[in-house]
Every structure is written in structure tokens, then in C-alpha cells.
Design a protein around this nucleic acid. Structure first.
Lengths: 316, 316
DNA sequence: CACCGGACCGAAAATATCTTTCAAGAGTGA
DNA sequence: TCACTCTTGAAAGATATTTTCGGTCCGGTG
């Protein structure tokens, strides 16, 4: 931690660098809480919830105070702080103070009402759009750019890319495959678990396997990834549960945000939004790295598609 | 009864700020330093100066660290903190962190630049997330809720739903089909233009056909929609070009936003985001209308999926 | 010129706070 | 039901902060 502050640093992005492992989070704390909440124990969730609900209030409390407030122990508070990416409670508290100050000076972000059965359609649109925006922000804030960079590097140099995803995630997998194909990579999205395993056996070093699972514990997706991993391929996991079983066989883990779900808004919806953002980032990253071949390929595919539009008898 | 004015007084007690002369400073710390500087001793001035010059850096230091940095002692640092109006160094440090966060957030909200080939990966994430958020906002703002409501009503009462989409839009179509199936509707997404037309012939009044095309002029999608339209089915178009040919055969047109595209960010990316939001709105709308059957169906599908996950991992 | 008094300062003790360890308890799967 | 792992809080152990206390440096004074 010998960060030198030269005073006039020209705004590095939105300030948030890769969180997750190395540096503590700046202000994307609420996002981190939401993302990590599922992998927390009950007591830790209570602490995280209190912290997310009232950063200002909590920043005024000592470890003991917060422990009492949440009805837990100091140890649990410290554990939670660690999980959130800080070295200890002291640093969490500091971040909390920062967050509180930001909120104070900033605006009121609260529109967090759930969608109800009797909401008029206009409200549904508003809330849904807001939720998805929130999901995007959370995902971007929680994405580990180091892992992302590594995954991009692997993909860019891959001889062949296999993608596994079932259920809602299968669409995301297909999206990724489509995109990669467009810039000249050899990519294939598998939705059939058996065929996926069958194909995974063919992989070897220099190939890349990508598993997409929100829960992080979808057996049908883990199995082919494990095979690919064993075969020496570089493996990537896109999951909302970085602590889940899938990570066991993943060289690089990309975390998607886990938004709260409600009865009418299944988790699948926000997980898809989150996953797609990650996929887009991968795509752009690879396109950057292989620009010389990607750019012409993109242009060519655009050109080819033009013929499919409007020339038919249909007027206009 | 105008004599007594008991009500308005904000009961004493709770609001006590203690702190002899000044409550803790919010953000006007630099000013406070300058004001109080003359009344400080040399050592204290050094501390105050360091604090004012680099709040962020100092907030990362312990009392000992700051003492060393300024070439003074812990006691002096504490004394300075007191003079600045805080109970002790701990609180000064907290305020410092808040100040730093404020300064940080104050700068560079603009992310309007396009993604460039040499952008670092962290910037890509930020820009992409921002762009997609923008797309969502645009879509939500531009969506005609009347049309949406009509489309929802049609879907909710449909005997059968056929969905047409090719290319990137095919994934959106599949997403919609998946969702509708989950709540008990009979929906099918067609990606093969020939089969789509073949099936469209079967449609009749009471059925719904949905065409998804960003350009609004994709022949392969328009053709089946036209057939469905002629057969008397209710037709819905999800398109970025409401003035395009596809609208001719659509009873209800849902407009997606047309974001600017750049070389590295094909239009397909934002159109997909936009389309998915519309699809989600449709889904929620239908789920609301058919709540009695949709809710149990959603719960049941969730239940059924739980078995596909490996039992490992911690419980919630 | 030596002495005195007061303000200023820092080393170290005293205290508060944070962190780690460890064993008991709760929940789970066989 | 039993064995097992994961979770949890109490208390010991480490750090950080605050207080105490004595030394030093002036400026004034006899």
C-alpha cells in the first residue's frame, strides 16, 4: 500500500479497479454486498445488511458496537469485513465513512420497490429498467479486471473455444459464441451436457473452455468444464457464486452480480443481464487484441447481412 | 387556544452534539485548517498541513504513521485532531476518508467516449456498462406503454405464441419463449425462416405472433409475420425502426432504442440489451395478468431445477 | 549572566479497539 | 442416530489510540 498521491491524477475510470481480490472497494460497496450475500453465512449476512442499510451509522460504531447491534460477535464482524475485501474492520469502517459522505453529497438513489402484481405497466417498465441498470452497475463494479484480462488473453490466443451453458445461461453462451465467431474465432456453444462432455475430451492446452452458470453449481456445466480442465485447456467460469463448485475447475473466475429476486422477477432475469455484460466485455477485449483480423471480419459480416434486409418484394 | 405553543419545540436531549465549541467538520476541513493555523504550534501546523494537503493519503495512516510522516509524535497528532474539533484522531481519520471519497466522486463522471482499440480493460468495462445503462434508460423512456399493454393483453390470452427472430435477435426470441413457457403459455421461437412460415400458416385468430428485428426490415422475419397477420393472428413487432416494413403487418409495435454504434461496438450489442428489456416487460406483464397460474408455475420450475444443482456449497 | 516560569513536545504507560484462536454448538448427510 | 463439517462467539493476543508525565526550549527577570 504505497500508493502515491501525486495530487492531480487524471480520473482513472470511475475509480473502481478490480475488486474481489487485491484492492478494497471504493464506493461500490452496496454492490459487493449484494453480490456476495449469497455466499455468506446468516450472521455475516446480518452484518452485511446492517452495513449496506446504514453506512453512516455503522461507520460510527466500533467493532463491538456493530457486533452488538447485529446481535453477533466481533469475530463475525471482522470476518464479514474480510469477505467484503478489506484487510479488517478498521478499513471497512473507513470505506463506510467514505460511502456515507458520498451519499450525503450525492443524490437519493432509492427507488427500490419491488414489482407488485398490481403495478401498472408503466411502473413495471420503470422499475425493470432501473433494476437492470443497477445490475449492470453492480456487475461492472464487482468485475475483477485482472481475471477478465487473463480470460481475454486466453480467448484471443485460443485455437478453439467451447462454451457450456444450460437453461437461461445457454442463451448467453450462444451469444458469446456468435460474437466470437464473428471475429474469426472458432467457438461453439454447447447446451447438451452429454455432447458437451464428449467435445470437451477433445480439448487440450491452447484451447479455452467457458462455463456459464449463475448458481455456480450446475452439474451439467461443471462436468464438461472439469473434463476440459483435466485435459489442460484454459478454463473460464462466469458465475454469480465465485465460491461455488464450478470455480474448482476454473483458471479464471468472472463474477456476475447476484441481485435480489422477487416472486415476479426471477433471479434468471438479472443474472442474464449481468452475464451478458461480462460476455460483451470479453468480446470487446478479444476484438481489441485481435484487431487486425477482427475489424475486417466484423465489417465483412455486416456487409454479408445487408443483403438479408429489405431487398425482398416488401416495399419501403 | 393560541396561547400554548408546546407542539413545535423539538424535544431536548437526543440532539445533543456535546463537543464544546464545534461539531465535527463535514467537508470544510481545509478552511478550518487555515482558520485555526495561526493558533497552532509549529508541530501541529505540520500535521494540519499534511492532513489538508492529502486527506486520502492521511486517512490511510495510523496515528503513528502520521506522526512519523510529519516528524512529530502521536500526542501531537491527537492534539491537532482535537483542535480541529474531533474527539480524537480516530474520528478525524474517519472524516478524512469521507472527504477523500467526496473529492474522488466529484471528478470525471463523463464516460461518453467511444471504446477505443487501446483502451485498458477496466475502461472497457466501465464504458460498456455505462452504454448499456444508457440504452436501458432510452428504451424505457421510448417505450409506448399503451402498445405494450395491448401486446401483454394479447399474449396473456393467447392460445399459442410464435416468435420469429434471426441472427442476434434469435436469442432474444428464445429468451422470450423460455420465459413464456415457464408460466404455462405455449410459445415457440423460430429461427428457421422456412419453418417459421410453415408454422405461421397454422395460426389463426386468438394466436399471437411476435417478430423481433432491429432493422425492421429483415425479410426472414417479416415474411412469417405477414402470414400470421393474414391468418388473423394478433401480431407484435419488436423493432428499432417503427417506420420499417415490419410494422406494416404488426398490430402492436414495440420500439427499441437505436443506440449509436462504433467500430468495436456493433449495434447488435445495444439492440440486444434494448430488446431484452422489452421482452422482460412483456414477461412480467403477462405474469401479472395470469398471476394465478403463473406464480405456481414459476415456483414449480424453480423447484424442479433445484435438483440439477450439486448439493455441495454452503446453504443460504 | 543565571534563574524562573510557562508553553511545547515526545516517550512511554494506560486504555480502547481490533484480530486471532479455539472449542462448543448447529445443521447436514449417511 | 451418528459422524461430520461449518458456523459462531468468548476470550486471549496484538495494535492502535489516548493519556500521563517529564524534559526541553524559549523569553523574561533579578
Amino acid at each position: 500500500m504505497k500508493e502515491i498521491f501525486t495530487g492531480a491524477v487524471p480520473a482513472a475510470g470511475t475509480g473502481s479497479k478490480s475488486s474481489g481480490s487485491a484492492p478494497p472497494a471504493p464506493a461500490a460497496l452496496a454492490a459487493k454486498v449484494r453480490t456476495l450475500a449469497p455466499s455468506m453465512t446468516r450472521s455475516m449476512q446480518r452484518v452485511a445488511e446492517a452495513v449496506a442499510a446504514d453506512p453512516a451509522g455503522c461507520s460510527a460504531l466500533t467493532v463491538t458496537g456493530l457486533a452488538e447491534l447485529t446481535g453477533t460477535s466481533e469475530a463475525t464482524v471482522v470476518r464479514t469485513a474480510r469477505l467484503l475485501g478489506y484487510p479488517g474492520y478498521r478499513d471497512l469502517r473507513l470505506a463506510l465513512a467514505g460511502l456515507a459522505a458520498q451519499q450525503q453529497s450525492g443524490r437519493a438513489p432509492a427507488v427500490t420497490a419491488d414489482i407488485a402484481v398490481d403495478d401498472p405497466i408503466a411502473d413495471v417498465v420503470t422499475k425493470l429498467a432501473y433494476d437492470e441498470q443497477q445490475t449492470l452497475a453492480d456487475t461492472a463494479a464487482g468485475l475483477d479486471t485482472v481475471q477478465l484480462g487473463a480470460a481475454v488473453a486466453a480467448l484471443a490466443g485460443a485455437r478453439r473455444v467451447d462454451i457450456y451453458g444450460v437453461g437461461a445461461s445457454s442463451l448467453v453462451g450462444m451469444d458469446l459464441a456468435q460474437k466470437l465467431l464473428r471475429i474469426g474465432l472458432i467457438a461453439h456453444a454447447h447446451t447438451d451436457p452429454h455432447l458437451a462432455v464428449t467435445n470437451a475430451v477433445q480439448l487440450r492446452s491452447g484451447d479455452v473452455a467457458v462455463a456459464i452458470t449463475h448458481s455456480g453449481s450446475t452439474g451439467d456445466v461443471i462436468e464438461p468444464l472439469r473434463v476440459a480442465f483435466d485435459r489442460g485447456a484454459t478454463t473460464v467460469a462466469i458465475t454469480g457464486r465465485p465460491d461455488g463448485p464450478v470455480s474448482q475447475y476454473a483458471d479464471h473466475v468472472l463474477t456476475t452480480s447476484t441481485a435480489r429476486e422477487s416472486e415476479l422477477r426471477p433471479a434468471a432475469m438479472s443474472s442474464r443481464t449481468s452475464q451478458l455484460l461480462v460476455v460483451d466485455c470479453l468480446f470487446i477485449g478479444v476484438a481489441q487484441r485481435t484487431y487486425d483480423t477482427a475489424a475486417p471480419a466484423l465489417a465483412a459480416s455486416y456487409e454479408a447481412l445487408a443483403h438479408r434486409h429489405t431487398p425482398r418484394g416488401n416495399h419501403r
